Simulated scan of single mutants.
Amino acid sequence: MEKNAKIYIAGHHGLVGSNIMKKLREKGYTNVIGKTRQELDLTNQDAVNAFFDVERPEYVVLAAAKVGGILANNSYPADFIMKNLQIQCNVIDAAYRTGVKKLLFLGSSCIYPRMCPQPIKEEYLLTGELEKTNEAYALAKISGLKMCYFYKKQYGANFISVMPTNLYGPGDNFGLTNSHVLPALLRKMHEAKESGADKVEIWGTGKPLREFLYIEDMADGCVFLLENYDGADFVNLGTGKELTIRELAELIKKVVGYQGELYFNSDKPDGTPRKLLDVSKMKRMGWTYKVELEDGIRRTYRWFLENQNHLVMK
Rank of each mutant, 00 (worst) to 15 (best):
E194M: 15
G221P: 07
Y151T: 03
E242C: 13
Y258F: 08
C148R: 01
I202R: 11
G238N: 09
T244R: 10
K152R: 14
P164W: 03
K254E: 15
Y149E: 10
D172M: 03
R246D: 08
A232E: 15
G156H: 07
T165W: 03
A136C: 13
V162N: 00
W203C: 13
L186M: 13
L167V: 06
T244Q: 11
K146G: 00
H180Y: 12
V181G: 01
F224C: 05
C148A: 14
K188M: 07
I252N: 04
E227N: 04
G240C: 14
F174Q: 03
R187S: 03
E135I: 12
I252D: 06
A232Y: 13
F212K: 06
L237E: 03
P170N: 05
Y263F: 15
D217W: 00
K207A: 12
N173W: 10
F234N: 01
S195V: 11
R187K: 10
L186D: 06
F264Q: 11
N158P: 14
I202W: 11
E216V: 02
M218H: 02
L248G: 00
L237K: 01
F234T: 01
N236T: 00
Y258N: 02
D230W: 12
V181L: 08
E227Q: 06
L226C: 09
S179Q: 05
Y168K: 08
G240H: 13
E227R: 02
V181D: 05
G144W: 03
L213P: 07
N173K: 12
F264R: 11
N173Y: 11
Y149R: 06
K241D: 15
C148L: 09
K207I: 11
P170C: 01
Y151R: 00
G169V: 02
V200P: 06
A197F: 05
I245R: 10
S161P: 07
L145D: 10
D217K: 03
K193Y: 09
K207D: 12
E135L: 13
E261I: 11
P183T: 06
G260M: 03
L251Y: 01
F234Q: 06
S179R: 00
I215N: 00
R187W: 09
L213C: 07
G206R: 12
D220G: 01
K152W: 07
G257R: 04
L237S: 00
I142P: 03
N228M: 04
L139E: 15
G231P: 11
K153Y: 05
E194D: 15
